[in-house]
Design a protein around this nucleic acid. Sequence first.
DNA 1: TAGTTGGATGGTATCGATAACAAAGGCGTT
DNA 2: AACGCCTTTGTTATCGATACCATCCAACTA
Lengths: 337, 337
Amino acid sequence: MSQIRKPPTMADIARVTGVSPMTVSRAFKTDSLISKETRDAILKAAEDLGYVFDATASNLRSQKTDFVAVTIPSINNANFADTVGGLSETLAARNMQILLGYTNYDMQEEERLIEQLLRRKPEAIVVTGGKHTARARKLLENAPIPVIETWDVPAEPIGRFVGFSNAGVVRGMVDHLVRTGYSRIAFIGGDVGRDTRGSDRRQGFLEAMRQHGLDTSRLIAAGPPPISMREGANAMARLLEQFPDTEAVICVSDLSAFGALTECQRRGMRVPEDISIGGFGAYEIGSICVPTLTTIDAHARDIGRKTGSLLLDILDGKQDVGDVLIKPQLIVRESTR
Amino acid sequence: MSQIRKPPTMADIARVTGVSPMTVSRAFKTDSLISKETRDAILKAAEDLGYVFDATASNLRSQKTDFVAVTIPSINNANFADTVGGLSETLAARNMQILLGYTNYDMQEEERLIEQLLRRKPEAIVVTGGKHTARARKLLENAPIPVIETWDVPAEPIGRFVGFSNAGVVRGMVDHLVRTGYSRIAFIGGDVGRDTRGSDRRQGFLEAMRQHGLDTSRLIAAGPPPISMREGANAMARLLEQFPDTEAVICVSDLSAFGALTECQRRGMRVPEDISIGGFGAYEIGSICVPTLTTIDAHARDIGRKTGSLLLDILDGKQDVGDVLIKPQLIVRESTR
DNA sequence: TAGTTGGATGGTATCGATAACAAAGGCGTT
DNA sequence: AACGCCTTTGTTATCGATACCATCCAACTA
């Protein structure tokens, strides 16, 4: 069960096979110059000895790790998970491995995390969001690798970005609701100051409402992000108490929107007849619950895929690479008239 | 924006500060013997030069990576995400980093992944599930590090395990439903042969039904795992066509259970009056949807935390470490009578 | 036949940090 | 004053794979 002797190295295989360590090394690289017989003999010896390639040594000498560092706010969020999935599938073609870290929606934690990740000498770093602490920004700027910011359009991009305007998407939702005939519209979001994308969405709500000359006081802060279904339900309860005449609610995500929906159902209110609900993120739940939820699809997986191919282009030294502006899409479903 | 000269090393800091590289190295280790003045001078020089610690070199020389390799079926599953979260928070105390890989519910892919992960020389490896390909098993057995299997009670454990009987939990659910007075009970799960935990749950269903002398033919295969809400809804539709007199359904997860619930709602059926529904996993949705879902809480986060502390105990050389048997808990809610 | 080409292989130094050991200096004790 | 001990710092070798350059030899050309 447990090994006492230490694991074999390429030198051991070389000894057994009667070749030089250099040749053993070549046998493990797919595109190298080596005869088929030699390679087969080496691979067989490796299998027999139970050899496991040592990436730490390879990394140091070749100054390549095949790591791509990625920070996301939370692993428990289908949107970010999808982005990581899309990125992962794109990078798999190059045998690159994702080194994932969670910031827990905290810029301080992000800073700490970025520092830790950079120590592992990744080939590139992908961060979620376009706002960072001063120190984190400096770390990223000084890093000798490509930096990509996602899920946002940074005020001052560090490297390239793949994102969209979080304020813009909510403006679009407000515009749609106003066009449909609503005017008493509320917003349920997280506490200001933590989730920067959430704050941007709330900002977009305020701007759009002002532009339409509508009341902007219907704001419910549902606690620190991420806002759960339960917190969405609680926020809806508070909203209905404070502003019983509200006609429509925009929630910071489909999860809180679903929570809000269940609160209405428990109170015997009909959606959308008595109140309309809009979400964000095109989570599966919004497409299947009763009634289905009007939402905004940010194309989370696509963000990951496009980040991946942008990254590969940069690493390949392509010259004409540019930022990628994602076009989120309003999906009107049963929860709004 | 981009650096031309190559990043500074400890040797550079040593030159600037007028000490030996060894002393610089010591300045970065918290518990080492070094005077406060020297350390401060070194850290300041490091900051000025924009030094970033090189973990690849450190890893090679010290033969320690502080990596813990983890395989999970899918990142897009709140249960496994919770387990990773619990593990992550436990390991954070030791500054260990999780190296995560997704098997996509595929044992072949798991084998490939385990091989890739072992190359990075992790300090330990945590795999989800207790069934593996022969080669994967061999790789794990030969690995000179602790191996922990989770979310299952392996027939032949490789190292330690932190899990529960997937068949057992469903047996418990069936027993409960039978006790409550149901007899025409169905099971909605994934296709056999892929998701081993899902297959075990289905097996538990069959065993329990036979034990009670009940009809075991009400089985719906909803496609390859993971089973989405949509697939749960479709499966429910098929179930209602094939076996319209079904009294209760057990779904392989809360997500498919919720899908099944929505299908009933769209058909104007009442839950639990017309049909009862049970799920698995204690996802948030089951605690908030209308009606709330009867489910089984496998204590996903707890599995992660316990795996973490078991791991630390093993790495610390504790002698009395044993397997951890998780006690999943039946939570009876509104979706069953 | 001599010269050239290119595929296959070997030798050596090196990536950057640190384990292991050595040594210098300060302080207290007898 | 001599000794030992502890704190702080330095020296050297090393982790394991591979970049770089050299070499060998068979096959082909002129």
